[in-house]
Amino acid sequence: MRIAVASDHAGWSLKEEIKKILAGHDVSDFGTGDSTACDLPDFVHPAALAVGKAEVDRGIFVDGVGYGSALIANKVHGVYAAVCQDPFCATLARSHSDTDVLCLGAKIIGSALALETVRAWLTTDFLADNPKYVARVGKIREIAEMHIRRDL
């Protein structure tokens, strides 16, 4: 699987831990490269564009609480990001909503829980054989088509 990772200074250390468990995947790191204060959009936006353009299959973005990454990512056409703070939420974000970006808050959860959350999200498939979830995701995609510009 091709995975984009990105973070700001608050999420950098956890992003580096996450990259270690992504062995066997094709990982593209969009930055940041250290814990020096920086602006989250400078790194998450290009990573989200890579997801939206299907240059990668999924994205994992880490900042202080996760919401900044999700706000940025969900502005990009073709990106469906969710903030997850435990494996249960990550499993539902994939199985029920077919998310392609996982956003984590490094100040919210510890690394052990974050790593388990990543594993759960990566190994869970969308319930594509369940008409209820297919219809729900279809409605979400219709909303995106009405409001999010395609020109990346």
Rank of each mutant, 00 (worst) to 15 (best):
I21V: 11
V51R: 02
H77C: 07
E17C: 07
G64E: 11
P46W: 07
D86N: 15
E17R: 13
E116C: 04
L49C: 11
A106K: 11
G52E: 02
A54L: 10
G138T: 05
S95H: 12
L113V: 12
V134D: 03
D151C: 04
L102T: 08
L152K: 09
Q85N: 14
L127F: 13
V62Q: 05
A81I: 10
H147Y: 15
T91E: 12
L22K: 01
A50W: 00
Y80W: 15
A128N: 05
V101H: 01
T36Y: 13
L152N: 12
G138I: 06
D26Y: 02
G64H: 11
Q85Y: 12
L40G: 04
V56H: 09
L71T: 09
I143C: 07
S69H: 06
D29R: 00
A47S: 09
A50M: 05
G64W: 02
V5W: 02
M1T: 09
F126C: 01
H96E: 11
H25S: 05
R2K: 15
G68W: 05
E16D: 09
L14F: 06
R149N: 12
D151L: 13
I21M: 13
I21T: 06
R119K: 14
R149I: 10
Y133F: 15
D39W: 08
G110S: 10
A114Q: 07
E16W: 01
E142S: 13
G66Q: 04
S28M: 02
V5K: 00
R119C: 01
S35V: 13
P46D: 04
P87I: 03
E145T: 12
P131T: 04
L102R: 06
A47F: 00
A37E: 14
I148A: 05
S35P: 00
V79C: 06
L22A: 03
E55Q: 14
F126I: 09
S28T: 13
I108K: 08
F88D: 05
R2N: 14
E142G: 00
A93N: 06
V65H: 13
T117C: 10
T123Y: 01
I3N: 08
W12S: 00
A90S: 13
A90V: 10
P131Q: 09
A23H: 04
A128R: 07
S95K: 10
L127W: 14
D129E: 15
D57I: 08
S111P: 13
L92G: 01
A128L: 05
V44N: 09
K53R: 14
E145D: 14
K19C: 07
S28L: 10
D63N: 09
D29W: 07
L152E: 12
V83Y: 02
G64Y: 10
S111L: 01
R141N: 07
C84K: 08
C89N: 14
K75Q: 13
T117S: 08
E16S: 08
V134I: 10
H25F: 09
A90F: 11
K132A: 14
D34M: 11
K75R: 15
D63Q: 06
G78L: 07
M1C: 01
R141C: 03
S111N: 11
V27N: 03
A48E: 03
L104F: 03
D98C: 04
T123F: 03
G78R: 10
S97H: 15
L115I: 12
H147V: 15
I21Y: 03
F61P: 12
I18G: 03
T123A: 03
I60F: 06
S13K: 14
S95P: 04
C89S: 15
I3C: 05
